[in-house]
Simulated assay, not measured.
Amino acid sequence: MLRAPKKNVFSAVAAVGFAVAGLTVAAAPAASAAPCTDIDVPVARGTGEPGTLGFIVGDPVFSAVQNRLRPRSVSSYRVDYPADLGEPASVQKGNTDLVDHVRTQAAACPAQRFVLVGYSQGANVVDNSIGISSDGAIVGGPIVATIPADLAPRIAAILLFGNPIRAIGRSVTGTYAGRTKDYCAAGDPICQAGGFNILAHLSYGSNAGDAAAFAASKV
């Protein structure tokens, strides 16, 4: 597979980070997960992405999932990690936090199921958490924690957007493959080797409805 030079892709990642950091958005209310909702939606935002769960992906996708799954109760969780190009262990911190959250919620709420969402660097956080290494991807890193196998049946769906591992020829395989929808917009240099359209990486909010429909089909 043809691969874009890593230096050029890193420049693209930096450009996206600066672009999303420069977006002006109204402050959204802090996401708060009910103790035991039917579905919990942990979201790992993209690099420098503003918004409660992520202005480009997390906020619109969570809203669409919540609307699609009514009358079932749906909560959200903002994965606690830097989402920062300047933090060498950013992905690993997100990986640890996401796995800890799922384990804690699963123990407290035995009937609760999960829809995992990750955008850009956040997609690498989700990749690692389900055992697909993002090491070698432009904003990736080694796996430091994975969701325990006994909790795998409770992961109803996984929604990934602009996933950097795709640019190095990887994808979600194995246990979670059939429950994963992995969006890569045409020309997005973060997920497509040789991609040239950095604006494509900012387009994923348009997939919110389709992503919610996929999640609903798996819950």
Score class of each variant (00 low, 15 high):
residue 136 G to V: 12
residue 197 N to D: 15
residue 131 G to K: 10
residue 162 G to V: 03
residue 169 G to P: 05
residue 71 P to F: 04
residue 161 F to Q: 04
residue 203 S to P: 00
residue 101 H to L: 00
residue 65 V to G: 01
residue 60 P to L: 04
residue 47 T to Q: 07
residue 188 D to Y: 05
residue 184 C to Q: 04
residue 10 F to S: 14
residue 72 R to C: 00
residue 52 T to I: 00
residue 85 L to C: 07
residue 120 S to K: 07
residue 140 G to D: 10
residue 151 L to E: 10
residue 8 N to P: 00
residue 177 A to W: 03
residue 36 C to W: 03
residue 119 Y to N: 07
residue 163 N to I: 05
residue 3 R to V: 12
residue 216 A to T: 06
residue 22 G to P: 05
residue 67 N to P: 00
residue 205 G to K: 08
residue 176 Y to C: 05
residue 150 D to A: 12
residue 168 I to L: 14
residue 204 Y to S: 11
residue 39 I to F: 11
residue 120 S to H: 06
residue 104 T to P: 00
residue 102 V to W: 05
residue 214 F to R: 13
residue 22 G to N: 14
residue 151 L to W: 12
residue 192 Q to M: 14
residue 192 Q to D: 06
residue 2 L to A: 13
residue 25 V to S: 10
residue 168 I to H: 10
residue 8 N to H: 05
residue 178 G to A: 11
residue 29 P to V: 06
residue 100 D to R: 15
residue 10 F to G: 05
residue 81 Y to R: 12
residue 146 T to W: 05
residue 60 P to S: 11
residue 118 G to A: 08
residue 172 V to C: 06
residue 207 N to A: 13
residue 191 C to S: 03
residue 173 T to M: 04
residue 115 V to N: 03
residue 33 A to E: 12
residue 212 A to S: 08
residue 62 F to N: 01
residue 34 A to E: 14
residue 8 N to G: 00
residue 18 F to S: 13
residue 45 R to S: 13
residue 114 F to P: 01
residue 219 V to Y: 10
residue 50 P to D: 12
residue 50 P to W: 13
residue 20 V to L: 12
residue 65 V to T: 01
residue 198 I to Q: 03
residue 166 R to Q: 14
residue 17 G to H: 04
residue 10 F to Q: 15
residue 167 A to C: 05
residue 191 C to M: 07
residue 133 S to A: 04
residue 192 Q to V: 15
residue 63 S to Y: 01
residue 178 G to C: 04
residue 179 R to L: 08
residue 133 S to M: 06
residue 153 P to S: 12
residue 98 L to F: 13
residue 44 A to R: 10
residue 139 V to C: 04
residue 127 D to Y: 13
residue 87 E to S: 14
residue 115 V to A: 09
residue 109 C to K: 01
residue 47 T to P: 08
residue 19 A to N: 03
residue 40 D to E: 14
residue 61 V to H: 10
residue 162 G to N: 06
residue 196 F to Q: 09
residue 90 S to N: 07
residue 123 A to H: 09
residue 65 V to S: 02
residue 98 L to T: 08
residue 144 V to A: 08
residue 38 D to W: 08
residue 129 S to R: 02
residue 59 D to G: 01
residue 61 V to C: 02
residue 8 N to K: 13
residue 85 L to R: 09
residue 178 G to S: 11
residue 159 L to D: 11
residue 57 V to T: 11
residue 17 G to S: 12
residue 75 S to W: 06
residue 183 Y to G: 03
residue 168 I to Q: 12
residue 102 V to N: 03
residue 178 G to W: 04
residue 135 D to M: 03
residue 137 A to Q: 08
